[in-house]
Design a protein around this nucleic acid. Structure first.
Lengths: 132, 132
DNA sequence: ATAATTCCTATCGAAAAGATAGGAATTATG
DNA sequence: CATAATTCCTATCTTTTCGATAGGAATTAT
């Protein structure tokens, strides 16, 4: 499974945001998208950290996108919210750990697969996930 | 993570088999490939069930491939040994469960991703994983 | 009879993923 | 200034998945 619930929630929360003109409180977004509120909080905080959304705190606060919806590719959003999009541990974050990396005949295949997936996901944006 | 340890072990055990001319006992293969013996047993049994390898029981028994190495694509081997190669639950085995499938704007993207991955993995065979 | 093997079933343990809880900090507003 | 609505922070819980292990039954060559 490349794409977990967490990543899909992130995309849904962002498309929900994309439909709004003003900053929206998470309570509404989460309810609308059927994402558990507290889980949504955690996800949003990573999106803020990544600079994908902006937050305003306090009463009347909420979240808003920092770009136009068509300016977010699925690849970048998922890269931020998933643990790893990599096909294997061998090409993931702990990559450096493998002592056979230099001779492993399989590694190049996984790398090419990663690239294929990333290219694919770079070809879609938030807009492609919104009902017309 | 699309490709887990289990799938990679399967590929390694099969490439190890591909180097042999005669039926090879699992003990040797597992040792050679550094796969825990008992885990290897479980993996092999699914490969036998899938018809990818043949076993002969009893003393002097062992396993052997049923085809030439270049006749196994990574896609088919991994499809058998991984829980699911699908990008999401939405397109995996439990697919039918989702009540929004017919209207979900995201589903076609996951389907296309699955197809992209499958196509990619169909382009490689066991031979591509063997050192020249 | 024995040794070497595959096969079967059950279970364990660790890690990851999803989800929840409580409360601190911030801010608009009456 | 008090209050209500919000984001932010940290910790924890539960469930599922994944990797691995255990014990022994069945089979077969010698």
């Amino acid at each position: 499974m490349i794409i977990s619930t967490r990543g899909r929630y992130a995309l849904r929360l962002m498309t929900a945001l994309a439909k709004r003109t003003e900053s929206a409180p998470l309570r509404e977004l989460a309810e609308q998208e059927n994402v558990p509120y507290k889980y949504a909080e955690a996800i949003m905080s990573s999106l803020v950290r990544a600079g994908f959304v902006e937050s305003t705190r306090g009463k009347n606060g909420g979240y808003s996108l920092t770009r136009a919806p068509e300016a977010y590719t699925l690849a970048e959003v998922l890269n931020e919210t998933e643990i790893s999009l990599a096909a294997t541990d061998c090409t993931g974050r702990k990559e450096a750990e493998c002592p056979h990396a230099s001779t492993c005949p399989t590694l190049p295949v996984w790398r090419a697969l990663d690239e294929t997936v990333t290219n694919f996901l770079s070809g879609y944006t938030l807009v492609d996930l919104m009902p017309k």
